[in-house]
């Protein structure tokens, strides 16, 4: 219980830290979005829920079926607020991304831009308590993260490539990933246990599973592909193979790791 309290406390501290340490808005300085107050973000949220959520999802995480992208991390088609504004205003020709109503005031489009912007964390607005340099050291040394994870082509293959993890995970999420790795494990990192017709059991990361076959990578990094109708059985383990770092790393080392991971972006 004490452990949980500590974890919650850390998350709260980080969240509040993010709030209080946010640097002043840079939007006004570059004359970008002038409508980015909490009121505007909330107005954008309401518009989003009504007009956009059918395709992009109520949580804006996208939908493979409709092809609508996840809007909570880096946007592939818009690198700036103006770019996002233009897409919302004019749509994307030849796709299901239609323009907003022609008579929708620019103000409301900017509010929508502000809401979408609020879904991802702008690193310029965040000061984290940890040290990036120390975190990099923990990553490769004491934490031994690099034995499983790659960054910029260096490291192991048994976990997600983290070269740009800062673009898709907030500091709060990164912290949670390290403390509670079994929460919200992406299907790619589930484990599959396959028993073949001869009774041989083989286990590996679930690289892909479809209706008629599955592919895994075992601990020795061997790639296996099995037709489902040619194996005796298979079993999914919907948990992470990553350990929790609550016992092995100190609070400050975890802070450093969060700072390091959050710094991992394309521009860095």
């Amino acid at each position: 219980m004490g452990n949980l309290t500590t974890q919650l406390g850390r998350l709260l501290t980080l969240a509040l830290g993010g709030l209080f340490l946010a640097k002043g808005s840079s939007f006004a300085e570059d004359a970008g979005n002038l409508y980015n107050t909490n009121f505007d973000i909330n107005a954008g949220l309401k518009y989003f829920e009504r007009q956009c959520s059918r395709c992009h999802g109520f949580d804006a995480k996208g939908n493979d079926e409709t092809g609508a992208p996840d809007l909570t991390s880096r946007l592939a088609r818009a690198s700036s607020e103006v770019g996002l504004f233009n897409i919302i205003r004019t749509g994307i020709p030849g796709t299901a991304m239609l323009p907003v109503a022609a008579d929708l005031p620019d103000t409301q489009v900017w509010q929508l831009v502000a809401y979408i912007g609020s879904l991802s964390t702008d690193p310029a607005n965040i000061d984290l308590p940890g040290s990036v340099a120390s975190g990099a050291s923990v990553f490769t040394n004491k934490g031994d993260c690099s034995s499983c994870h790659m960054v910029d082509g260096q490291g192991g293959r048994l976990g997600p490539d983290l070269s740009r993890v800062g673009e898709r995970r907030s500091p709060e999420e990164l912290l949670s990933d390290m403390l509670n790795p079994h929460t919200d494990v992406a299907p790619r990192w589930w484990t599959m246990r396959v028993t073949d017709m001869d009774g041989v059991v083989r286990e590996g990361l679930r690289m892909n599973e479809d209706s008629f076959s599955l592919r895994i990578m075992d601990e020795e990094l061997n790639l296996w592909s099995y037709p489902k109708n040619q194996i005796a059985s298979f079993e999914r383990v919907e948990a992470s193979t990553m350990p929790s770092y609550t016992q092995t790393l100190s609070d400050s080392e975890i802070d450093d790791l969060v700072a390091y991971l959050f710094s991992l972006r394309k521009e860095n």
Binding site: Q51, G57, P187, W190
Partner: peptide, 16 residues
């Protein structure tokens, strides 16, 4: 305009 009065959200990945 859209007139749906709400929406939905998955709590698990589709593969689950």
């Amino acid at each position: 305009e859209r007139f749906t009065g709400g929406g939905g959200r998955y709590n698990q990945p589709m593969d689950a």
